[in-house]
Design a protein around this nucleic acid. Structure first.
Lengths: 216, 216
DNA sequence: GGGTCATGTAAGTGGGCTATCACTACGGTA
DNA sequence: TACCGTAGTGATAGCCCACTTACATGACCC
């Protein structure tokens, strides 16, 4: 009887997992994708890997440090996703920018982690340098794509990025809450809605580029 | 020693609270506003009222029924808020519609409950008639305002409502996650952003009214 | 004044969570 | 081959939660 056949671990690992740190982060993504941020727990992640609930604390001092590691990786993956999506989309800068909204929705659908995790309060309190840098790089990438789309400076483009991000994130969260249950089924349909919204935003902005928030 | 001076209850109530059901709903709003949906618990609500943790179960069979009552009231209050906001805003139907985005952000900031609560999975499983009706009325009101703003039929207007709602809700959630911490402080600034986004959406839609989600 | 019943309390059950502690298995190296 | 440090285990403390049960209170009605 090969021990690899009796339970969860692949390659017959028995006592030492070997790459538990990386496995914890990966399992965290799975848990987030399946159950959401509210249901996330260190114990669940450990159980999912078939390892004792104390094991994660060999690799992360506490829950927030694990979350920060997940968030940092999410930011990096998301940036790469945006880059590839823009590349794949073609030459039109407006379409390249809009396409990232769809990429965001699909990414969060598949990985469970988005801006809510990357900018979450817990990990943020740690002042984790790697996480802060990854978050900044992600936003800068979007800002760059937005500037190409608008042909305008960082100031006006930042407004567009915010609107874009907020809308995409709104679609994801309301999708998870089953707000769209009846009308649109499947993450791809919602991703298309987010892209459409981004296009609309850009059109509306071109029509009145000086529109800001400024009154009240 | 007057008993009214030793603890929380006003008017010297001792054993019977008298209007605990309504008080539980009201305290739930406070808790949601302060700590968010993830931190909501029946025990916290009870403690906040200075009442035993078993007391709520005299009025609600379980947690989800309390949440459903809160959600129903939130939907009704929100509808009233939208109506008053539109009224107060003036004659321009586009502005009347856009203004509801700001009202939504401010309402969720103050009361802690929005579409995430109204359409949450838990209460929805109860098939609560009052909640379902209140949610429908809320969406119909928005749809009506949107039709006046676009001058178009329900189909195209429904898309606008979705975009509008998603954006407003996105602003609220990312505001709570302190996404805007640096640039914009205060719920009013974020509310203005949501209004601006709604205006932009409407402009963009007028420019290309046939834009749907349709490709994938 | 006495009974009744809705509405409250105290105490407890069973469960999940974070995190710690003493201990153990194993891989690599002298 | 002996041993040592890394990376696991199991048990446990301390906390919070949802919900239940038996009992206490007091408002209202006769």
């Amino acid at each position: 009887m090969n021990p690899s056949s009796d339970s969860s671990p692949q390659r017959g690992r028995r006592y030492h997992h070997g790459e538990l740190r990386a496995a914890l982060i990966e399992a965290s993504f799975d848990l987030l994708a399946e159950s959401g941020l509210a249901a996330f727990s260190v114990a669940q992640v450990a159980r999912r890997l078939g390892v004792s609930t104390a094991a994660p604390y060999r690799h992360f001092p506490d829950r927030d440090h694990l979350m920060a590691a997940v968030a940092t990786q999410a930011a990096a993956e998301l940036a790469e996703e945006f880059r590839q999506t823009a590349e794949r989309t073609g030459e039109d800068p407006a379409e390249r920018f809009a396409a990232t909204a769809g990429a965001y929705v699909r990414f969060v659908g598949a990985r469970g982690a988005g801006f809510n995790v990357i900018f979450a309060a817990g990990p943020r309190r740690l002042h984790d340098r790697a996480l802060a840098d990854a978050g900044r790089r992600l936003m800068n990438l979007l800002l760059e794509l937005a500037q190409q789309a608008t042909g305008q400076g960082p100031e006006a483009s930042l407004t567009l990025v915010e609107q874009h991000v907020v809308a995409a994130h709104g679609y994801v969260t309301l999708y998870r809450d089953e707000f769209f249950a009846r009308r649109h089924n499947g993450i791809d349909a919602v991703a298309d809605l987010a892209v459409a919204e981004s296009r609309t935003l850009l059109r509306g902005m071109r029509k009145a580029p000086a529109a800001g928030a400024g009154h009240s």
